[in-house]
């Protein structure tokens, strides 16, 4: 190393960094690559050569065959349903959660700590035991076989996001609020003008999470939707495989591949809000 000057050392360091990172990237993405290449394998190939990444011969039938769906309902429908549910639910979750988080972070009302505790505790209930009571409840609302149970509860705040945004709001100095308050800004105005723009990274994070979770949610749609035309992608994906009978793994991989694309694209597009241009606002001075 002594033979190299400083810039050369830096260059070598960077090359090594990239080599290591690319190798790690390969490890991280191997399952996705496997899924991608398996979606071009024939049924025999998938099971006879499970250890080889590449198909023995390329087979493109899995995509049209998978897209065909089940009994006349195609993946166009499933994608449409998933998009509809995800977009509506995510908007509601993020917007309402930011409101609630502001209430907890910046208002000193009576019962604040109790409600905060209730909010945290409601994150701890395993969804599995709530299935039946929730179904009974939504059935009494007449909401079964509609998208409402999947969308509406999100408009009343989602504890995970409330907590996340709340934590970020706590990181914002109060001097800013106070300055705004002296300028005649009400609590409501402070929320909209001061706090909301500053927690953008938390909102984006929530948005990415919320999208992925809604998109990936299997149990909710499975329980509440009965009409096949209303099924979301997550249910449809499971329907290719049946442990008690013949499964179509090729089509399953193909459709799984397509179904992760929107989430990846979303992440790729939104990540810039998380990193680029390090914050210059919100400091004390």
């Amino acid at each position: 190393m002594a033979l190299l000057n400083y810039t050369q050392q830096k260059k070598v360091g960077r090359v090594v960094f990239h080599i290591v990172v690319v190798f790690l990237c390969f490890l991280m993405t191997y399952p996705l690559l496997y899924m991608l290449f398996s979606s071009f394998k024939t049924a025999q190939d998938i099971f006879q050569h499970p250890n080889s990444l590449f198909p023995q011969e390329w087979c493109f039938d899995n995509y049209p065959n998978g897209w065909r769906g089940f009994g006349g309902v195609t993946f166009t429908t499933f994608f449409g349903n998933s998009l509809f549910v995800t977009i509506l639910a995510v908007l509601g979750q993020v917007a309402s959660s930011s409101l609630v988080a502001y209430g907890f972070a910046r208002c000193n009302f009576k019962g604040r700590s109790i409600w905060l505790a209730i909010m945290i505790v409601s994150m701890m209930m395993p969804a599995q035991v709530l299935i039946i009571p929730q179904y009974i409840m939504f059935n009494s609302f007449g909401w079964i076989n509609t998208f409402l149970p999947l969308i509406v509860p999100g408009y009343f705040g989602y504890p995970f996001f409330i907590f996340l945004i709340y934590q970020f709001m706590q990181g914002i100095p109060r001097d800013l609020d106070e300055a705004a308050f002296i300028d005649g800004c009400s609590k409501y105005g402070i929320y909209i003008r001061i706090i909301l723009p500053l927690v953008k990274p938390a909102l984006v994070t929530s948005l990415i999470f919320a999208t992925y979770w809604k998109w990936d949610d299997f149990f909710g749609p499975m329980i509440y939707l009965s009409d096949v035309k209303k099924y979301t992608i997550s249910i449809a994906l499971k329907m290719f495989t049946d442990p008690t009978s013949v499964s179509d793994w090729g089509a399953s991989y193909a459709m799984a591949m397509l179904s992760v694309l929107p989430v990846i694209i979303l992440f790729f597009c939104f990540q810039k809000y998380l990193v680029e241009g390090i914050s210059t606002t919100g400091m004390k001075g």
């Binding site: 299935i131 039946i132 179904y135 009974i136 329980i223 096949v228 249910i235 499971k238 329907m239 442990p243």
Partner: peptide, 21 residues
């Protein structure tokens, strides 16, 4: 028709049974 995969079938039926649906 309301068809499903094996995964989740019995949970869904349990929920439907509990509310007579």
């Amino acid at each position: 028709p309301e068809y499903l995969a094996w995964d989740g079938y019995w949970e869904k039926c349990a929920a439907m049974g509990a509310s007579k649906n």
